[in-house]
């Protein structure tokens, strides 16, 4: 079962220092919303730990994630 509090926390953590990230993460959450899986939440949470400039480099395709397990989530954000 999905943990509502976890999603709520994730939603707040999508508030960033850069508008670019705010917009992309907002679109991603609007599209996935409550249907996001626990695994995807964990992956997104890890990406949200990154600094804004590094996260934007990943989303904009200027960098690739160090850890290949993050790749599907990066891909999802790139197309959001």
């Amino acid at each position: 079962m999905m943990d509502d509090r976890r999603l709520a926390r994730l939603r707040w953590r999508c508030r960033r220092g850069m508008l670019e990230n705010d917009l992309v993460l907002g679109r991603f959450l609007d599209a996935r919303g409550a249907s996001i899986t626990e695994d995807d939440m964990a992956l997104l949470d890890r990406l949200l730990d990154m600094t804004d400039t590094d996260l934007w480099d990943l989303i904009a395709g200027r960098a690739e994630p160090d850890d290949a397990t993050l790749a599907p989530m990066v891909k999802a954000l790139r197309t959001s």
Binding site: R13, R15, R16, G17, M18, L19, T51, D52, T53
Partner: peptide, 12 residues
Amino acid sequence: TKVFPTRSHTVA
């Protein structure tokens, strides 16, 4: 702070 310090808007 509302967000983690290194995510403040100064980064922009």
